[in-house]
Amino acid sequence: MKKFYLALLIIIAAVVVSYGFIGAQQSQGDKHPDVDWTLSCQECHSEMTPEVYKDWELSKHGDVDFGCYICHGDGQEVFYPKGTDERCGGCHAAQLVEFEKTKFNSCYDCHNGHTLKFHNE
């Protein structure tokens, strides 16, 4: 019985600790909500998701105004709830990683998608 409670505790801890790491991406769904498409990503997200917007704005992508669409698509015709490694590699060819030679599976294992910083920074 103790083992069961321990397992349950681990699962609850997983939900609490890792929600921001994995869950936030999974909960988005495959479709972007239908919105006022005459707005740019930034115009809307600066109001709707100000924290994410702030993370992006202070990142290197934000610094050079490379917008949400670079990783997530336009939201209407193309939508990637989570960025893909292939897309990272397009611009950052010098940092392309052959993951099979590492302990990692994705750029996002090390980098936060919005701040672009390492998770330990």
Partner: peptide
């Protein structure tokens, strides 16, 4: 979220935290 997912996520976080990028730069992975 399965325990497997949790452990994997934790391991990845730990690995990223521990290793940073320093261990990747300069090796054959690029």
């Amino acid at each position: 979220l399965s325990r497997r997912d949790f452990l994997r996520a934790s391991a990845l976080s730990a690995a990223a935290t521990t290793l940073g990028i320093g261990s990747i730069f300069g090796n054959e992975a690029f």
